[in-house]
Every structure is written in structure tokens, then in C-alpha cells.
């Protein structure tokens, strides 16, 4: 292979691209880096939440005393995550209301359900954190890349107007350079789309698990309130 063919490498194209195209490429690469960081962060967080959910549910249905479970959580230094947070806020509200003198059972139930709803909303927020960013990267970066491409092709055709003898070789580098912008845009967008779909589905599944648990837990508390 002759050495001259190597001159048209990706690197040369990127370096020789016009300023706007370079800016587009840079922003797309930054978007890609950030979205990948979020992907990794989400993966670890959701995996942890799922593991915590399975282990806590196992513990919860093992017949352990609820007071003991609550105290176990108190002893831990870490901040409570996911499912345990819901349990704790519900149970705390429940015990607090029951200790008050003239609280009737419906008011107790209502109060602890409200507390659990709040905790659920917080958990949902945590689970779906960063997903909007992934969604916008997924939908916008192809357009940004396309903008870079259109700009680059425009430039290469503008420069073509000054040339008398038009060959493919005079246009080709400009178009190749412009197409790199689209390539980078797609490179950023495709993982973001996949990640967004996956994470939102998983967050949805976890949230429905949490809600089921909250219902079950409130059923248990209801039984306790009305058994008196």
C-alpha cells in the first residue's frame, strides 16, 4: 500500500475540520463521556437497589419482629437505601402516632400511608435521576451531528465554487470530515437510547415492587391497629 493513502486518516480529517465542525464534535464527545458516566452510575445504583430489595424482603418475610427490624436499621451507620427507607419512614410514623394518646386507628393508618407515599416518591426520584439527561442526549445528539455534517458539506461546496476543475478528490475530504460529525453523534446517541430504555424500564419495575411492598406493609400495620 502506498504511503500516500494514509494521509486521509480520521485524525487528519478531525484536525483539518472547520471550527464549527470541530466544536460540534467536541460537544458530542463531551456528551458521550457524560452519558457514559451516567450509565455506569445508574448501573451500579440500580443493581444495588435491586439487591437491597431482595435481601430486605427476604428478611421482612422471615417472620422477624418489626421492632427488631427497625432497630437493626438504627444500628447501621449507613444511610438507608430504597426499600428500607420506605419501611422505616412508615414504621416510624406508625409507632409515633400510636404513642399519641387519642389517635384513632384510621388516623394512624392514614398518617403512616402518607409517610410511605412520601418515601416512595423520594425513591422514585432517586431511581430515575439522570435519565432525562440520557434521553436528551439520545434524541438531540444525532441532530447536532447532522448539523455539523450539513455545515461541513456546505463549507466544502462553497470552497468548490472557486475551483474550475472539479473532481471528486476536491470534495471528498470535506464531506468525509463532515460525516465524522454525524458518526460521533450516532456514537453518543445509540448507547444513550439503549441505556435510557433499559434504566427507565428497570426503575419502573423497582417502583412497582416498592409499591407492592408498601401496600403489603400497610396491610400488616392495618391488622395490628385494628386487632386491638
Amino acid at each position: 500500500m502506498p504511503a500516500t493513502e494514509n494521509t486521509l486518516s480520521i485524525w487528519h480529517l478531525v484536525v483539518n475540520a472547520s471550527f464549527v465542525v470541530q466544536l460540534v464534535m467536541l460537544s458530542l464527545i463531551i456528551a458521550s463521556v457524560i452519558s457514559w458516566a451516567m450509565i455506569f452510575q445508574r448501573v451500579t445504583y440500580q443493581r444495588r437497589a435491586k439487591e437491597a430489595f431482595t435481601s430486605f424482603e427476604k428478611q421482612f418475610w422471615s417472620g422477624i419482629d418489626l421492632n427488631q427490624l427497625y432497630r437493626q436499621g438504627n444500628g447501621r451507620n449507613e444511610y438507608a437505601e430504597g426499600i428500607e427507607n420506605i419501611f422505616r419512614s412508615g414504621f416510624k410514623e406508625f409507632t409515633r402516632l400510636r404513642q399519641q394518646a387519642g389517635a384513632d386507628s384510621d388516623a394512624v393508618m392514614e398518617g403512616c400511608q402518607r409517610a410511605m407515599r412520601v418515601a416512595l416518591a423520594r425513591e422514585e426520584e432517586k431511581l430515575e435521576e439522570n435519565l432525562p439527561f440520557l434521553a436528551s442526549v439520545a434524541s438531540v445528539s444525532p441532530y447536532v451531528g447532522l448539523f455539523g455534517t450539513v455545515w461541513g458539506i456546505m463549507q466544502s461546496f462553497l470552497s468548490l465554487s472557486n475551483v474550475h476543475q472539479t473532481t471528486l478528490a476536491t470534495v471528498a475530504p470535506g464531506i468525509a470530515e463532515a460525516l465524522i460529525a454525524t458518526a460521533i453523534g450516532l456514537f453518543a446517541a445509540i448507547p444513550a437510547v439503549l441505556a435510557y430504555n433499559k434504566f427507565s424500564a428497570r426503575a419502573e419495575a423497582l417502583m412497582s415492587n416498592y409499591r407492592t411492598f408498601a401496600e403489603e406493609f400497610s396491610a400488616i400495620l392495618h391488622r395490628q391497629v385494628h386487632s386491638k
Binding site: S9, I10, V33, A37, M38, F40
Partner: peptide
């Protein structure tokens, strides 16, 4: 940590592209 992993991934990809483009 995720940011670090992401940046490393991109750098690795870039190097792979530059070296192996031919």
C-alpha cells in the same frame, strides 16, 4: 468512579481508532 471509567473507555476507543484505522 463512573466518570473515570467513562473517560478511560473513550480514550481507549480513540486510541484504538487512531492506531488501527489502517
Amino acid at each position: 468512579i463512573p466518570m473515570m471509567i467513562s473517560v478511560l473507555l473513550h480514550i481507549a476507543l480513540l486510541i484504538a481508532f487512531l492506531v488501527n484505522w489502517n
